[in-house]
Computed example of a mutant assay.
Amino acid sequence: MELHVTEASVEDHVGIVRLNRPERGNSWTTRMNAEYRWLMQSMEDNPEVRVILVTGAGKQFCVGADFKALDHYKASDKDYVESSRNEEMARPGHGVRDEFDHELVWHWGLSKPVIAAVNGACAGIAVALTAFCDLRYAAAGAKFTTSTPRLGLPAEYGLSWVLPRIVGLTRAADVLLSGRVFRAEEMLAMGFLNGVLPAEDFAASALQVAKDMASSVSPAAVKAAKRQLYAEQMHLDPGRSVEDSKVLTGTLLKQADFREGVAAAQEKRAPKFGALAS
């Protein structure tokens, strides 16, 4: 696919996907969605990639949907649901569970961890995209807002489901009902972010987080744990979680990564895990 509003690279087993419309605050469009999905599928398929880092070009992460793209709905008879269907786009993360085969939720179906590196303003759909990533880091002072209640719109793209599970019902209500701006530091305090990093060297610091993960954990074990983490949000059965984990443990105990992990720990060296088998 020819890329116009995104870009990507691979560095030390980290696939870097960058939203790239800095002159428009990296605002979200159908074209960006198509490119983003295609790139994420490419990273999923690339055996050299062990961790995926998502960030924005310039000073902002993503300021939400492009208002020009939404404006025509005001006076149009065009149906928003029908017009937003994306059957012709790439389908990363699909086929793992039916519940994941939807916009943005597909991040949970990927076999590799996805880190959102929020380098600046994060608004609207970008908050939802960030929520469906596995880990979230932001630059100090970065601003977050759903903005939707101040625009006369509902909570977008599953935020009413996923946000309470990340930060709790009370804090989610504040975010979704007030539409106010939250700084990164407040989002960290409520548990939405895994960390806040200095703004002046944020890109390098966030990339180092991804590189450290890529070099230190077993891709097979991470895939298994990610499947557990999100599948178990669906059934909420602790006993089943225990039994399923025992089956997975029995399987992974027989794989090379376990032998390498034990040997590395005993020899006090960094592990050398193999690539994720397809």
Rank of each mutant, 00 (worst) to 15 (best):
L177N: 13
S241D: 04
T170H: 09
A214L: 07
K226T: 00
T170K: 15
A214P: 07
F202N: 03
V209L: 14
W161I: 10
S160L: 06
G195A: 12
L207P: 03
R171S: 14
W161M: 04
A206K: 09
G158P: 10
L176C: 04
L169V: 12
S147C: 08
Y230R: 07
A184K: 03
A184S: 15
S215H: 14
S241W: 13
I166L: 15
R180A: 08
A206Y: 12
M190H: 09
Q208A: 14
M190K: 12
V209H: 13
V162Y: 00
T148S: 14
V196W: 04
G195H: 10
V181N: 02
M187C: 07
Q228A: 13
L169D: 13
M234A: 09
A214C: 06
P198W: 06
L176P: 05
Y230T: 02
V162T: 03
E232V: 00
A184T: 02
G158S: 04
M187W: 03
G158W: 02
S205N: 14
M213Q: 10
A173P: 00
P219A: 09
K211W: 03
D237F: 01
R240P: 00
E200A: 13
A221S: 11
M213K: 10
G191D: 11
E186N: 07
V242Q: 05
L188G: 01
F192N: 01
P154Y: 12
G168M: 07
L197P: 11
R183T: 06
A172R: 05
R180H: 09
D201N: 15
E232T: 04
S178W: 05
G168A: 07
L188E: 14
E186G: 01
S147Q: 11
A203Y: 05
R227D: 07
T170A: 14
E156S: 13
L193C: 04
V217L: 15
Q233T: 03
R183D: 09
L188P: 02
A203P: 00
I166C: 03
V181A: 03
L188Y: 15
S205W: 00
G195V: 06
L236H: 09
M190I: 15
L169K: 14
S215Q: 14
W161D: 12
A203L: 11
D237Q: 03
G195W: 08
G195K: 11
W161E: 12
A221W: 12
G195P: 09
H235E: 01
K226M: 13
M190D: 00
R240F: 04
L169S: 12
V181D: 08
L197F: 12
M187E: 02
T170S: 10
